[in-house]
């Protein structure tokens, strides 16, 4: 019966872990208003998180736009529906690929960087030093980064989608020779701002909350050793990615179930 005891113990440990994480998240929300007053800190974080991710997001967006246009063209041309290429690419990007791919890239680039930074600050006793100076490290260090992530990800997603559509335009109109006017007008008729773009932005905001919170939690709770930090950054990427994909499924079902 030993395995039952182990199973019970690990289930309890897992529940405790989730509870700890949930309390951490609630605490983070509690200190958010304080960091809004120190907006300079938030700005610095938007720069570290958002601006520094621009290159990879723009490059990926362009590449995805190119490839999506090509692949969709090969599929659509069989049904004589090549004119709808712009529409198909747009909807794919704005509804799904934009929010999800940007979030995954974000988790990899900005998420790991946040985890490592916080983990190393903890290892170097900077967090303890702040506490002993009667300064709440959650308000001073964590909350600005949290806000920075929530602000950055929707903007990055918008850029990814826009660049992707432009990339598709280059391939569709420039390479394949689809009519430019049709390319844009079919999109304008078929893509609804609130339903498609709006929901995409909402998705990216949710992903921003999830990815940033996970990254901060892993960094804050990591062991102060090189292995601890390495393990924590891995967990950030894995947990963020799984959470993004899971939430995407739920959000898509909620938002796009009725046509």
């Amino acid at each position: 019966m030993n395995w039952l005891a182990t199973l019970g113990a690990s289930t309890l440990a897992m529940l405790r872990g989730w509870g700890h994480a949930a309390l951490f998240f609630v605490d983070l929300l509690r200190v958010l208003p304080q960091s809004l007053r120190r907006f300079g800190l938030v700005v610095t974080q938007i720069h570290a998180i958002g601006n520094r991710s621009l290159l990879i997001i723009l490059a990926s967006g362009l590449a995805v736009g190119f490839v999506l246009a090509l692949q969709m063209y090969y599929a659509l041309v069989k049904y004589g529906a090549a004119e709808s290429l712009g529409l198909v690419v747009n909807l794919s990007l704005v509804r799904e690929l934009g929010p999800v791919v940007t979030a995954l890239l974000f988790a990899g680039r900005a998420g790991t960087s946040l985890t490592a930074e916080i983990g190393l600050m903890k290892a170097g006793e900077q967090i303890a030093a702040m506490e002993l100076m009667a300064i709440d490290p959650r308000a001073r260090v964590l909350a600005p980064r949290f806000l920075g992530g929530i602000v950055s990800l929707p903007l990055l997603t918008g850029l990814f989608s826009a660049v992707g559509i432009l990339g598709a335009w280059v391939v569709a109109v420039g390479l394949i020779g689809i009519d430019a006017g049709n390319f844009w007008s079919i999109q304008q008729n078929g893509v609804d701002v609130w339903r498609d773009l709006g929901n995409g932005v909402v998705k990216s905001a949710v992903f921003g909350v999830v990815c940033t919170a996970v990254a901060l939690y892993q960094g804050y709770e990591t062991e102060a050793t090189p292995e601890g930090v390495a393990y924590a950054t891995t967990r950030t990427v894995v947990i963020s990615s799984l959470a993004v994909l899971g939430m995407d499924f739920i959000l898509t079902a909620l938002m796009f179930s009725t046509p």
Binding site: A128, E131, M133, I135
Partner: peptide, 30 residues
């Protein structure tokens, strides 16, 4: 904690700030 100061073993200085900003930190925050 406003009445005490602690010197940590390896300094625990804030690596993203300059020397000046590190010393100014408690003054600016408190």
């Amino acid at each position: 904690r406003r009445r005490l100061g602690m010197l940590f073993q390896f300094g625990a200085l804030f690596t993203d700030l300059t020397v000046f900003d590190n010393v100014a930190f408690p003054l600016r925050e408190m």
